[in-house]
Lab assay of single mutants.
Amino acid sequence: MDTYKLILNGKTLKGETTTEAVDAATAEKVFKHYANEHGVHGHWTYDPETKTFTSTE
């Protein structure tokens, strides 16, 4: 398992979190669920070199 990072740049919520996942697709599902639960619906990007997802509203 690898550690993946999420950076949230929402209108009402900003911050970072991490998750352990078997691959990027699994981490993306976890992070999108997390963002949706916190009302963040933004544009998603992923940097495979740093294993970092960013959601920007």
Rank of each mutant, 00 (worst) to 15 (best):
G15M: 15
H43V: 15
K11W: 11
A24C: 14
T50A: 06
A27Q: 00
A24S: 08
E57T: 05
F53H: 00
F53G: 00
D23N: 09
G10Q: 04
T19N: 03
D2P: 06
E49I: 11
K5D: 03
L8G: 01
V22L: 12
T45W: 06
A25W: 10
E28G: 06
T54Q: 06
V22Y: 13
N36G: 08
T17S: 08
E16A: 09
N36M: 14
A21K: 01
D2I: 13
K29W: 08
Y4T: 02
L6S: 02
E57P: 05
G42N: 03
A24K: 12
A27Y: 00
T50H: 06
P48N: 07
H43W: 13
E37N: 09
H38E: 05
Y46N: 00
D47A: 06
K51G: 02
F31D: 00
A25P: 08
N36F: 14
K5P: 02
T3L: 12
N36Q: 14
T18E: 08
E16Y: 13
N9D: 11
K51W: 04
T3I: 12
K14P: 04
S55G: 05
T52P: 00
G42A: 05
E20F: 12
T45K: 07
G15P: 04
K11G: 08
Y34K: 02
L6H: 02
K5T: 14
W44K: 00
A35W: 02
K29I: 12
Y4C: 04
T45H: 10
T17W: 15
S55L: 15
D2K: 14
H33Q: 15
H41P: 04
S55P: 02
E28N: 04
K29A: 12
H41C: 12
A35T: 06
L6P: 02
E20D: 10
T52M: 03
T19K: 02
A27M: 01
Y46P: 00
D23Q: 02
K32V: 07
V40S: 04
L6F: 08
E28M: 13
D2V: 12
E37Y: 09
T17V: 15
Y4N: 02
A24E: 07
T56C: 08
T3D: 04
A27F: 01
V22T: 11
K32A: 06
T18D: 04
K11S: 10
T3G: 03
A24P: 10
A35V: 08
T50E: 06
K32I: 09
W44Q: 01
D2S: 14
K29G: 08
A21R: 02
K14V: 11
A27T: 01
L13T: 11
K11R: 13
H38K: 13
Y4M: 02
H38C: 11
V22N: 09
D2C: 14
D47C: 09
E16I: 12
H43K: 12
Y34V: 04
A25V: 09
A25S: 09
A35P: 01
K51Y: 06
G15K: 14
I7N: 03
K29N: 08
T19D: 01
G10F: 15
Y46G: 00
F53P: 00
D2G: 09
T54P: 00
P48Q: 08
T54V: 08
L13W: 15
T45Y: 07
T18K: 07
H43N: 13
V30M: 10
T52H: 01
H33E: 15
A35C: 03
T3A: 05
H43Q: 13
D2A: 13
V40H: 10
T56F: 09
A35Q: 03
K14N: 09
F31Y: 01
F53W: 05
D47P: 00
Y34Q: 02
T50N: 08
T26W: 07
H41Y: 14
A35G: 02
F53D: 00
G10S: 08
T54N: 05
Y34N: 00
T12M: 11
K29Y: 08
E37P: 02
T19Q: 05
T26R: 05
K11T: 12
F53S: 00
S55H: 09
D47H: 06
K5I: 11
T54W: 10
H38I: 12
